[in-house]
Design a protein around this nucleic acid. Sequence first.
RNA 1: GCCGAAGUGGUGGAAUUGGUAGACGCGCCGGUUUCAGGGACCGGUGGGCGCAAGCCUGUGGGGGUUCAAAUCCCCCCUUCGGCACCA
Length: 809
Amino acid sequence: MSRKSEAKYDHISIEKKWRERWKERGDFTIDLIHARRPFYNLMMFPYPSAEGLHVGNVYAFTGSDIYGRFMKMNGYDVFEPIGFDAFGMHSENFAIKKGVHPASLVPQNIAHFRDRQLKMLGFMFDWSRQVDTTDPLYYKWTQWIFVQLFKNGLAYQKKEPLNWCPSCMTVLASEQVIGGECERCSTKVEQKEMIQWFFRITDYAQKLLDNLAEIDWSEITKSAQRIWIGRSEGADIDFGIDGLDEKLRVFTTRPDTIFGATYMVLAPEHPLVEKITSPEQKKAVENYVRETMEKSEEERIDEAGTKTGVCTGGYSINPANGKKIPIWVADYVLIGYGTGAIMAVPAHDERDFEFAQAFNLPIIEVISPDGKEHELTEAYTGEGVMIHSETFNGIDSLEAIPQITRWFEDRGLGKKAVNFRLHDWCISRQRYWGPPIPIIHCDTCGPQAVPEKDLPVLLPDMEDFQPDGSGKSPLARSDEFVTTTCPKCGGPAKRETDVMDNFLDSAWYFFRYPSTEFDDRPFDSDRTRKWLPVDMYIGGNEHAVLHLLYTRFITMALKDMGFIEFEEPFKTFRAHGLIIKDGAKMSKSRGNVVNPDDFITRYGADCFRTYLMFLGPYTQGGDFQDKGIMGIRRFYDRIYRLVCAGNMAPGMPDDKGLVTLVHKTARDVTFNIKNLEYNTAIAFMMEFLNGMTGADTIYKKPVEILIRLMAPFSPHLAEELWERLGNEGNIFNAGWPEWDDSKIVYDTFQLVAQVNGKVRGTMEAPTDISKDDAIAMAQSNENVGRFTEGKNIVKTIYVPQKLVNIVVK
RNA sequence: GCCGAAGUGGUGGAAUUGGUAGACGCGCCGGUUUCAGGGACCGGUGGGCGCAAGCCUGUGGGGGUUCAAAUCCCCCCUUCGGCACCA
């Protein structure tokens, strides 16, 4: 047969054919009401950026889609929706850069994403239920959520020093500051004191933490959340202030060290600083506070370790022993944690030790590892026996913590306390491209929620939408938008002009998917009961403390407000890994960005999908090497030719080895997919093909099994081959291959003969060989004999169906 | 600095209740097909020694436990990720 007439795997026409067929048949539009085995398979919806779909998106979606298709073949009614997270600074900044209005750019981007890219990749999305966060019909309900939180006291305004991104010209939530930089544009953030809207996520800190123990999430994600929530247990203790009728409250995890407190430190922003400063120190303190406020977050991070501060001239009274100790101001104490003030115990805290050394403050050892006194050259932070602690001397420090806490409690000077580093979620943004915060400010009635019947508060169409850095949103420049009447008293009032954080849009989108046809409610309760919580959620771990934490909070709040019956949104979450290119991160500056479109055109979506999954374990990512995709292409070419050749014997082969291979492959591929170990699943399928083509006759049944196993990876090709083999109907309704464990048996195995742990020979032995026979067989091996001759056999180890190890001396 | 994960051929990666290290690919080498050019098929491919049988060596480095260690324990190095003065 000449090369020309040989069957050629034409991926372009095959993929086109099946895209159309699926659309015609409506294969993936599922009946949400009558579904019998609902399975909600969710992936993180993308920003429809103008650069188009990134290979990282394709990687993420493919891994999720394979899982969804696998579940479908296992008989579940899989709901796999997709949408567009199109509000927010990412879209807006890009629009500014291009000089286009986001309202005209975003729909273009969505169309490109959806029609030119996502639809080419063979995902089984239910296109009848999309979500676009910029659609007023969607953000109406984003605003509705705000209103519910406001009514329930979970949304409030407060003035606080906040993270301000000078480039994006807006405040950010602390989760959106990564290493002192803006999460979106990597500009160094500054501190700015402003009045903003917050959500009380801290009310849920304990629950957010506790539930982590119960949910089936990637451990790496759970641990990131645990660290971010940052629970620490200790005590609040009130120190007196010399000459003032005020209390100075501190939080400490080490009340056992209180007799070693030799000074106090206030954060520069602490409200008591001014009151306690003595006239002599006034100037120095004022200078220090001003300098600190002017420092950027970056400078403070860089300086961590070098201690600065000034003495206030004020004194505090240690409630443990009545001693007078000086109060200092220093920036190593943060206003945002605990009470913004500490009792400094230089002997047992590294930071306090450094500070005490820098400013020659006394160091008193109160915890001793061996009960003796020491000359301290560094802080001792471990446990030990208490010394210099009056009536507590001799007590083990661990036991002393509850004792001392109780001692203070009894005297009304302190109490057990728990602190979280988690802060309330700042959701105000001084930007244009987001849902307006649905609040009306009335001078007489205060801030009022926009009545639900008046939602959505439409984002006004403004030609000039650029942020101006004034600390106010561009919306403030529209009188028409701002001017309104108070819903309570009817008097003149002004609308809130900030828009909401983009992460609120995405905190509830999966509630909307199953209920997109309802325009009188955000989500239908029957629908929600049937489909939520989400069964499987796959996405990037970069959202561990952003989206994934906010989402859990919103879900908990919705439950407490009575709208839903569960408090965790995702039963299972798996973080996928990251794709790199030739060992390095992909980036435009390196010029090593993989463009999915090129590979799809050249090799087909099926090949591209499969290759991405072959790069490495899905949860760990992989290294994309352009040449590697040929391996997958060859694999599919071979299968295609095999099926097209058509000369197959019916049914299953008689050959026991082949039968075993069929069952073993079905089993292994199944478990691999369940565990998201797609790379090894593909390897097993390749071995299967190699094993089949090595035989004289090809049988049809094993080929059909292989095609079903590969269907989640290469849906178009699998459909095509399934049809060519004479099957009717969607392969995804054909069921998942079953296997029989009792068929996975071998008559013989390779018996390894070792002498002193080194392999000296291998021989084929019957599976049911006895221990004695196995040992005898090993000893009969010529090479083994060379190493045992003239030696004493000390012992012999037999591991059934594995090896014999003869130990000689 | 602290926490977590990981270091395996030229390369991506397999193998973990401890039991033949390198599955499956890529690349490379040799061959077949009247084959001219990213085709198909067959064979080989960790390193060293050897004509060969085979031997030695080998999973970041160094110790240890064990009949047996990529896998378990201790110390060290490197890389990546997270947190970053959190009291």
